[in-house]
Structures are given as C-alpha cells and as structure tokens.
Design a protein around this nucleic acid. Structure first.
Length: 585
DNA sequence: GCCGTTTTCGGCCCGACTGTTTTCAGTCG
C-alpha cells in the first residue's frame, strides 16, 4: 500500500464527512493528514513498522489507527460505511469547480444525481436551477466548468510554465518600468508542476499594463480585464493571472499569493496565538486594532517574529518550526555548483560534440565536466560498446589536454538491465572517472523486481551514481514501482550517489525524496543529463528542486572542487584513496 | 480529529466573490 493510496482513502473520508455535514474542523484534520502524507519522503508503511505514525504532522491517535487498518487490510471500514451512505459517484460531483459539499449533497439527495452525465442532463433541463437558492446563473456556471474540465489539461510541468511566464514578463518589462514584477504561487515555490501562473507587480499605470498584458501575442482568450487584475488563457492552455497592487502592501500580498495554503494557514494560526491577524493587506495587532502594511516580505515575516522563509520551503510542513528555532537551512544556490557529472554528446544521442559541451560548461563557470554517453544497451541511442568507449576516452583526454579552463572527466551512463546486471564489463569501467547507471527499459516491472534491480546496481563496486532513480517523465510517464526508502538506505550505506536530474521534465529525485535522502545521509549529485550545450543551463531547475528538498551546498557532491569530489570508484575513487592516504600521513 | 506561550479542554486562518437574496450561504484560493 503506497502513500498515494492511503492519502486517497483519507481524502475520500474527508470529502464524505464534509458532505455529511460533519464539523469543519474534523474535515480539516483529515485534509491536513492527507497533505502531510502526500508530501512525505518516506513510505507510511515503514514509519508504521518503526511505530512513528504519530510523527506525521496532523496524524493523531484516531487517524494513526485508521492508517494502521488500511496498511493491514488494504481498506478502511469507516470509509466503506461512509461511502455506503451516499450514492456511488457523489465524490465526482465535488470535483467540479463551483460544487462544494452542500451542493453535492443536495444534487444527490434531491435530484438523485450521482455522475457527471446525470448532472449535465439536469443542468440542461432546468432541474438544477429549479432548486431552492439555485438559479440560472449558477446552473450555467457549473455547466461551463464541466465542459471546461473535459477539455482542459491538468497540471503542467514547470519546464513549460516557467518559460511562458518569463516570456510574458519580458514583454511587459519592455513596455513598462516594472522592477518588482515576479511570479507568485506554486511557480514561485518551484513545484514540479503548476495549475496556473500568477504574476504580481506594482505600477502606477495599472490599467495600461493590464491592457498590454491582455493583448500579448501568446494570448488565446481574455478571461478578465479589470483595473487591478487581468486574466488570460495562453495558447498552451495555461491560465495566467496578472495582479497589480499598491506598493505599500506588496510584501503581504506577495506572501499571501505565494502560499502554499498550508503555509499560510499555519502562519496565521501561529500569529493568532501572538495576538496578530495576518491577511493579504498586512498584519493587525488585535488588541490595538491597527493594520500595519509591508512593502516587502522580509519585514512581514519579521513582524511575526520569524526570519524570511525561502519560497521553496513554504509547503506548510516543518519550515515554520525551523524558522522559529533559527534552524532554516542556507539553501544551495546555482553558483555553488562547480561541475556537471552527467552529459551526452554526439557520440551517442546528444546533439553537440565533446568540445561544444565542454565550452558550454566552461561558460557556466564550471571547473569540470563528465562526459557520460549511453552504453551499448541503448542501441537506439547509438550507445557505446567497449571499443568505441575506448576511442571516446582518448578523444576526451585529448580535448582536455588542449582546452584551458575546464577539466574533462571520462565516463559512461550504463543501462541497468532488467535483471540488474550492467551492460559493460567491469574491466572497462575500472578505467573511467565517473560510472553512472540507470534504468531505461522494462519499466513496468513490479515493485519487488524493480527494487532488487536498482539495489543490485547500487551495490555494484564500480557504480558511482544512479541517475534519474525513479524514471518519471512529468506529464508523460509515472515513476517506476520501486521501494524508494530501501534504495535510499542502500545508497547511504554503500556511498553510491543518487542523482538529482535537473531536466525540467524529470526533476528526479523529486523534492520529498531529496529531503529523505538528506536525512539518511545519501550522497547527492546534481546534474543536467544535457543532450546539447544549451541544456547545461537547465541546471537551475535542479537547483530549485534541491532547495525544495532543503539541500545546502554541502549536501551536493559537485559543489566540491574536483580534488575533493569523492565518488565510489574510478579515478575519482582513486583520489578518494589518495586523500585518505595523505590524511593518514 | 488534532493539539498545546490557551497543554487533556476548548479552541481551530482570512478575505473575496458570486448568486441569491434583502442579510447571507456556499465556494474558492
């Protein structure tokens, strides 16, 4: 039973309790537990076996018992009983925007509706608008939402959303002086996917800015065009909101719209205990009844007794406690990185040659770059066999010798075959600086097989790094079935590094896994997996993802100068032994 | 149902918008 399954059962319990009219606080308690479980970097099952279920934020005695029942039996009696009270399918109604628990309950009890088809029919023939306190407009809105939801994409990978946001911001900056124009929302927090784009700025020409925004070339349709807020649908299907606010309240507004909801809720609960009321307009001292306004976020947080919290951490988990205790991490920054340990060239499926990749890395200010093309198993990617690899190593060394300003490392990205074996012999690997192994095939293996397969690679004496460990492609391919906790523990024990793959459609490991990896002391490498020179610059996506996993520079192997980079084997492994020898002398 | 500078009871974030109503319920972020 995986975390997502447990979370789904508890979410349905919350929805059903809400429909039933249970106390809002009870419903909220379940929702809070669901959010915690969804952001957990460790399997609930393994927490349970350690007797640590209650350590999940929002999980108390009652919910811990329910989780235990779910883990033991695969289901929850309480959940089954609640479901039996309502027509099958009622939960689908609540997923329609504009339909909350009250409306869902009435649609189901008064009209006997239990699916979207019945709902649509009732909307069209006037039964819905005939209900008490419902009208034509309400019915039309719900109908519009149903039809929109059918055609609309769900969440969009950040690698698509961020470039669009930046393009829009560039356009606006060319027309107006907008020094504080910035994304807010999940885009600013750098979640791996976003539902929409929120932009914010201050300006004394708000109306003109909004007019320009609504007539940009990427606009498909204008949804709203007001004096302080514009809302458009871009060609790509993404909704983009632009909000223009008073400079005096920019800090509290930016804080409010950056979220997450859980972060804001926790901030406000805490402030309430201090006699303060937080809102997007500022902070009110309840006893004095005076509203203080804030131009920046730093002063806003300071007024609540906290240091500024980086947006990437604002998920409402542990960041507020850490801020209170002065334990916020000094997060990794792009400038901390000194090299990239995973790129491809035209020797396999890359677009650029070795020298072009080296120059791209040098332009990034890097000190070193590992050339790690695919091995022979990747026939389709022109993977290297032992002979071509030897030729490539010669070329890498030749270019390294004549190219100043960057050190080139030899390497390979091996296939981990379905049985966990590698597709080049050990004696070939022994001469390389960097040996990466990764899964590229047979991705639908069951969890036991896949876990054993990856563990075998981690245990292999010549494997330095396991790349993109869960193999997900955002919006295209789910992560493989794998016991991530076991993989992390094995990586920590053996010293095999795991990769934070910076390609924006991978971001793998993901934030929660990175957080857990740090807890366990796993070595982490942050690489791009670039297939052309331009892609080396995509490293920032990986950096922001690492920050969401609370990474500091010291957590990432390739923030170290080359002579201190310690990988498991190869030349770098040799340097590890040399360092150890020198140390002993 | 959770949780503690209010610690085993009694609280639990804040405001905007919409549509349906003449003061507010429901929904959303």
């Amino acid at each position: 039973m995986r975390n997502a399954d447990i979370a789904m059962i508890l979410k349905e319990v919350a929805d059903l309790l809400e429909i039933k009219g249970e106390t809002a606080f009870k419903v909220r308690a379940y929702r809070k537990a669901v959010t915690s479980i969804e952001h957990l970097g460790i399997e609930v099952a393994s927490l349970r076996s350690e007797g640590k279920l209650r350590e999940i934020p929002g999980v108390g005695e009652a919910i811990a018992e329910k989780i235990t029942e779910i883990l033991d039996t695969g289901e929850l009696q309480y959940h089954q009983r609640l479901r039996a009270e309502f027509p099958h399918g009622i939960l689908v109604l609540m997923d329609v925007p504009g339909i909350g628990p009250k409306t869902a309950y009435r649609l189901c009890t008064e009209l006997g509706i239990s699916n979207l088809e019945q709902l649509e029919a009732a909307l069209l023939d006037g039964r819905v608008s005939g209900l008490f306190r419902m009208g034509e407009k309400t019915a039309a809105n719900i109908l519009r939402h149903i039809q929109a939801a059918r055609s609309r994409e769900k969440r969009v990978p950040i690698g698509i959303a961020l470039p669009l946001a930046e393009e829009i911001m560039d356009h606006l900056r060319r027309c107006f002086d907008l020094p504080d124009l910035t994304p807010a929302g999940s885009l600013r927090r750098f979640r791996d996917t976003v539902r929409d784009i929120d932009l914010m700025c201050t300006s004394d020409r708000a109306k003109e800015v909004i007019e320009t925004f609504c007539s940009l070339p990427m606009v498909e349709a204008v949804i709203a065009r007001g004096s302080t807020k514009g809302s458009i649908l871009a060609h790509s299907g993404l909704q983009v909101d632009l909000r223009i606010v008073e400079p005096g309240s920019f800090g509290s507004l930016l804080q409010h719209f950056t979220g997450s909801r859980e972060h804001n809720t926790t901030m406000r609960e805490r402030a309430q205990r201090l006699g303060l009321k937080l809102s997007e307009y500022g902070i009110t001292d309840v006893s004095a009844g005076v509203l203080e306004r804030f131009t920046g976020e730093e002063s806003f947080y300071r007024r609540t007794g906290l240091p500024w919290i980086p947006p990437e951490l604002r998920e409402g988990g542990l960041e507020i406690l850490a801020a209170e205790q002065g334990r916020l991490p000094i997060l990794l920054e792009e400038g901390d990185l000194r090299g990239d340990l995973h790129v491809h060239t035209s020797w396999s499926d890359g677009r650029d040659n070795i020298e072009a990749m080296a120059l791209a890395a040098r332009d990034m200010g890097y000190e070193y770059l590992a050339i790690t093309d695919h091995s022979r198993g990747r026939g389709i990617a022109r993977g290297l066999d032992a002979e071509r690899l030897r030729e490539q190593v010669d070329e890498v060394r030749a270019i390294d010798a004549r190219l100043p300003g960057i050190r080139l490392l030899t390497g390979i990205e091996l296939d981990i075959r379905a049985d966990g074996s590698l597709d080049l012999p050990d004696e070939v690997l022994a001469g390389l600086d960097v040996v990466i192994a990764s899964v590229h095939s047979s991705m639908n293996q069951d969890m036991d097989k896949m876990t054993a397969r990856v563990l075998k690679a981690i245990e292999h004496p010549y494997v330095d790094i396991v790349a993109h460990p869960t193999c997900r492609i955002l919006g295209e391919r789910d992560p493989v079935a794998m016991d991530v906790e076991s993989v992390l523990r094995a990586a920590a024990r053996t010293g095999t590094a795991l990769e934070i793959n910076a390609m924006p459609d991978r971001l793998d490991l993901k934030d929660a896994h990175i957080y857990r990896a740090r807890q366990l002391g796993v070595r982490l490498v942050l690489s791009t997996d670039a297939h052309c020179g331009q892609h080396v610059g995509l490293v920032r996506y990986g950096v922001r993802t690492a920050r969401r996993g609370w990474c500091q520079a010291a957590d990432i192997v390739n923030t170290r100068p080359l002579e201190e980079v310690v990988l498991k084997t190869g030349m770098l492994g040799a340097s590890k032994r040399e360092v150890a020898t020198r140390h002993n002398e």
